[in-house]
């Protein structure tokens, strides 16, 4: 089983086949509590296989963003450990990209400079990085906006810049923290398709935090359903629908079946929570 909560929480519809290749990252018995005594995550174990598109789906407060920050190394677990099997021990850099809920661009810098940032921090000059930066902008369809400033762009375009910045280092693992939650539905659908296209072409592994059942089913081939108080995994669903996924998939029976499954798993966590109160 590649994901389970070992403290006896219901496994729900855990139906994922065992993955043959070693996981790209493995969370082992992670507990994270904050100084105000909230337990954001309790005993979370989760293996992320290479090439997977995993959605962490759950209500607010289930610790899905906390899990993402732990994987990114932005905070450290209170208990348990995070293992990167494919990497040499002691390697500091995990070759990952992070897309925040907000675009998180530097307002004083042009689009080009914003996307250049990760490379610049690694000591690559503008001249040395120009091709890669322009490639990244090209991939999100913003090559013509390299000299614009963030404030001149729409919300969706800013998000694309943020994605270009995440992919400019060619990361193996992309972490996305509810990246499209603040966007309108039309823009969100468009960006969903962009992300899927990039995932297919760039051989990524994606961990995508969302609270939208529909988004998670449309995008991912695996949905990890989480419950709150304390944050834990309650279900691990495989979405066995072929890629490329298009608008056709969005209106298919298969899609609505998976949505129902995910909804039920999510609903179960909420009911349980109400009973507990």
């Amino acid at each position: 089983m590649s994901a389970a909560s070992s403290d006896g929480a219901p496994r729900g519809m855990a139906s994922r086949p065992l993955s043959e290749t070693p996981p790209i990252v493995s969370l082992q018995g992670i507990t994270k509590s904050f100084s105000n005594a909230t337990v954001a995550l309790r005993n979370l174990s989760l293996d992320i296989g290479a090439g997977e598109f995993v959605s962490l789906l759950g209500p607010s407060g289930c610790g899905k963003s906390t899990a993402l920050r732990l994987i990114a190394g932005l905070s450290s677990p209170t208990n348990g450990r995070i293992v990167w099997p494919g990497e040499a021990p002691g390697q500091g850099d995990h070759e990952l990209g992070f897309v925040f809920q907000e675009p998180t661009l530097m307002p004083w810098a042009s689009v080009f400079a914003n996307v250049h940032l990760p490379l610049r921090l690694k000591g690559r000059s503008v001249a040395a990085a120009r091709d890669e930066v322009m490639d990244a902008l090209d991939m999100v369809g913003l090559a013509g906006f390299a000299d614009s400033y963030p404030r001149e762009l729409s919300g969706g375009m800013k998000m694309r810049v943020s994605i270009a910045r995440a992919l400019v280092t060619r990361p193996k693992l992309l972490l996305m923290d509810e990246p499209f939650a603040a966007l309108d539905e039309i823009t969100r659908f468009k960006l969903n398709n962009d992300i899927l296209r990039l995932w297919e072409t760039l051989d990524w592994t994606v961990i995508f935090v969302t609270h939208s059942v529909f988004e998670s089913v449309y995008l991912s081939n695996r949905i990890v359903v989480m419950a709150a108080r304390p944050g834990r995994v309650v279900a691990d669903l495989a979405v066995d629908a072929p890629y490329p996924r298009t608008e056709e998939f969005r209106t298919s029976h298969l899609y609505s079946d998976y949505c129902r499954q995910a909804s039920e798993a999510l609903q179960a966590t909420l009911n349980e929570e109400e009973r507990a109160e």
Binding site: R69, A72, G73, L74, G92, D93, L96, F98, F100, E102, T104, M106, L117, P118, L121, K122, T169
Partner: peptide
Amino acid sequence: DHNLRNLFQLYGA
């Protein structure tokens, strides 16, 4: 911005 600080931390600035 806090997220930008996180980003810099992430890239080992």
